[in-house]
Simulated scan of single mutants.
Amino acid sequence: MHKKNILVEIYHEFFYCITWPKWNDLQYQTMIVFFFSIFLSIFLYGIDIFFIFLIKKFFSL
């Protein structure tokens, strides 16, 4: 296989065969990821504080 054929196939695949998401779908999915990340970070922070509290209670006897 020649390098030129590979480059032409890559170009064709990239511009004609890939379906890109619509702008509204992309914004919606980005907001879902953003809010889920914020929620997960707050949730994990709460669990961390809880375990720190338990460790302090058990080892400060």
Rank of each mutant, 00 (worst) to 15 (best):
V8N: 15
V8Q: 13
E9H: 14
E9I: 12
E9M: 14
E9W: 06
Y11Q: 10
H12E: 15
E13Q: 14
E13T: 15
F14N: 12
F15A: 06
F15T: 15
Y16S: 13
Y16M: 01
Y16K: 07
C17F: 13
C17L: 04
I18L: 15
T19P: 01
T19G: 06
T19N: 12
T19E: 06
T19C: 12
T19H: 14
W20V: 00
W20K: 02
W20G: 00
P21W: 08
P21T: 11
P21M: 06
W23T: 11
N24T: 11
N24W: 10
N24H: 05
D25Y: 09
L26D: 10
Q27E: 09
Q27Y: 07
Y28E: 08
Q29E: 14
Q29F: 05
Q29M: 10
T30C: 02
M31A: 01
I32K: 08
I32N: 09
I32A: 04
V33N: 05
F34M: 06
F34T: 09
F34D: 06
F35N: 07
F35T: 04
F36R: 08
F36S: 07
I38F: 03
I38S: 03
F39P: 01
S41Y: 08
I42Q: 07
I42C: 10
I42N: 03
F43K: 01
F43Q: 01
L44R: 02
L44Q: 10
L44W: 06
G46N: 13
G46H: 11
I47S: 08
I47K: 10
D48V: 07
D48S: 11
D48K: 13
D48A: 12
I49S: 08
I49L: 14
F50Y: 13
F51P: 02
F51S: 00
F51R: 05
I52R: 03
F53Q: 04
L54E: 07
L54N: 06
I55C: 02
I55V: 09
K56W: 10
K56P: 01
K56V: 07
